[in-house]
Design a protein around this nucleic acid. Structure first.
Lengths: 340, 340
DNA sequence: TATATTTTTGCACCCGTGTGCAAAATCACA
DNA sequence: TGTGATTTTGCACACGGGTGCAAAAATATA
């Protein structure tokens, strides 16, 4: 077969080709594609027209290589069982793309793999790494910060106090205070706190705040249970184990869950395995306001994080060249439904 | 402030630095990082040691630029309301990464944006684009194939007959035949098919197969309804509209849903708005086997796609340099639970 | 030890674009 | 029309590594 190139592959049209076609230099062509570049409108439109005709688009690899700015971020996720991750990924990719940023999705398989995942991302020379998983403990963060060339390491939707890290999250303390208030004022008196895995300091924040607030109000420390991952299926197992066979008098009257993933599993068990009603027998609260919360089946009272606002702030952080403390905690909103 | 470079940024260690440190040429250093390269074991380990000490890792941008192979794929998604997308993203990113491929996650905001999204990906010179959305109609595919430089355009988990496209999907026809058989043999006689949006030819496949099979068996064409997106919330609305106020005799005895997202919405409505029991009053089947299907609340009878196998095949396709017909349909598995 | 064979290493050139500056072109105004 | 101010354009050099081949080194063979 002769050396025929399929025209729709258009594999090697560069700025030079466009430049030659209209008799300008390559640099002029690239300028036409650059916002705020010093180029006359006439030339620009001439370039764009030719580029369009030839099917030219600038090569972002080469641009990144030459400028040391890729407009690419790595999004590291390790917790796909939590439906809230889907919401976060949607929101982040949408807003990032709106501002010209692309997203490398890295599935951190497990704790041991986190280092590799980060290394992997660093080889693509991303401008920043955004962590929305749970298994990133201090050790992993150190690895990331140590040898690698991330300009910015951002912990999104989780509070982190790590000094070289940027934390963009909801204000857990005030959120849990609000939830505690809601629970107390609605007459619940025997709460059980359903916590997620204790892999990272930040996670204790919600639990501790709740227990602390409750103690301050009533002088007793509520019971709590721990689920090894933010996975409704695992939450089912834990709740089953903790509540099955309890005398009615010792049953909690409300399950305060660290997030919706746990709350959803809890509701399923309470209703279908324990045969109890929600909220009459046991009420439930969550955190995140995942789409399922709206389902009449769950109608989950929960706390919504201002994800869009947080993502917009993230973009500001990415585009800022200052070197200040970017940590920020946002206020969310308690969404009262019928589960509590 | 003097020009002090933070050591942990390690921003410009190149193969040259490593080469100089141990007295070899740059090319030897890069060879050490390349599998199957012709290099002596001694030299390689010397290089690796030095690289490790200096914190050097090859720059994949430069490698991609020079070799015209990026080991990067774009994953285009537009349908984040469907929980199955989360499963697919997890599986794909996991398996791709296992084989050394990175994933660019592109959120195709809406139909009109699909073209931009594809252009965007092409500018990163990805080796292939993988579509797991629904809004990619023939027009969009043409755009993608036309001016852009994708080596491969893959439609994943959906059948496509587009000639320049690679379709890796489950065999919809045989799957729906199996479901039809299950439904018929379990005594259901008044099915209603709940379909998704009619944006793309492939989507009619499941519906048409079901209606066709049913007609062949019983001589009647079942009723059907259409939901404008694979979103449980929208499915709730449609099912409510279609079933509310119907005399009992005209109620379907089973809802055969095009996928789980629709089935889940349907179950919620049937139970909580219509006050009927599942499966006694109305049974439900889905498609995909999302994690929620296991919940005792849904216990959804559904059809599981062999996602891992499909993803592994995808990698084979990516790594193949032949130019043959890669389309392939996989057999999945009917998962019987108590919803039907 | 000399020669043939194989393995290992070095190198010229290329991938496609950004940066800062100097040259050229255009414009403003007397 | 001439001069200076301003905009627009061109260019040398850089970004970091891949490719194929030739030179050099190591090994095998006689």
């Amino acid at each position: 077969m002769p050396d025929v190139r399929r025209p729709n592959l258009a594999s090697n049209i560069t700025a030079d080709d466009v430049a030659e076609a209209i008799g300008v230099s390559r640099w002029t062509v690239n300028r036409a594609f650059k916002k705020d570049a010093s180029i006359s409108p006439k030339t620009r439109s001439k370039v764009m027209e030719a580029a369009n005709k030839l099917g030219y688009v600038p090569d972002l690899r080469a641009a990144a290589l030459a400028s040391d700015r890729s407009n690419l971020v790595a999004l590291l996720v390790d917790d796909f069982a939590n439906p809230h991750k889907l919401v976060m990924m949607e929101r982040l990719t949408r807003i990032l793309r709106k501002h010209g940023w692309d997203t490398l999705l890295v599935n951190t398989l497990d704790r041991a793999d986190a280092g590799h995942a980060i290394l992997n991302a660093s080889q693509r020379r991303v401008d920043a790494a955004i962590l929305i998983g749970i298994q990133f403990d201090d050790e992993v963060l150190e690895t990331a910060l140590h040898a690698r060339r991330f300009h910015k390491l951002i912990i999104f939707a989780r509070t982190s106090r790590h000094p070289n890290t940027i934390s963009i999250a909801v204000d857990d303390a005030s959120a849990m205070q609000e939830i505690t208030g809601y629970v107390a004022e609605h007459g619940y008196r025997r709460p059980l706190f359903l916590a997620g895995p204790r892999t990272y300091s930040a996670h204790l924040l919600r639990k501790e705040t709740f227990l602390g607030c409750w103690e301050a109000r009533f002088g007793t420390i509520p019971e709590s249970a721990e689920v090894p991952a933010y996975d409704p299926i695992l939450a089912e197992q834990v709740v089953t184990r903790v509540l099955t066979g309890r005398p009615r008098a010792e049953m909690p009257d409300i399950l305060v869950c660290e997030n919706d993933a746990l709350a959803i599993g809890a509701i399923d068990v309470i209703r279908h395995k324990l045969g109890l009603r929600i909220p009459e027998d046991i009420a439930v609260t969550g955190f995140d306001d995942v789409p399922q919360c709206q389902s009449p089946n769950y109608a989950l009272t929960t706390y919504r994080q201002p994800l869009t606002e947080m993502a917009e702030y993230l973009v500001d952080v990415l585009e800022s060249s200052e070197d200040r403390d970017f940590d920020r905690a946002f206020k969310g909103k308690l969404i009262a439904r019928t589960s509590a």
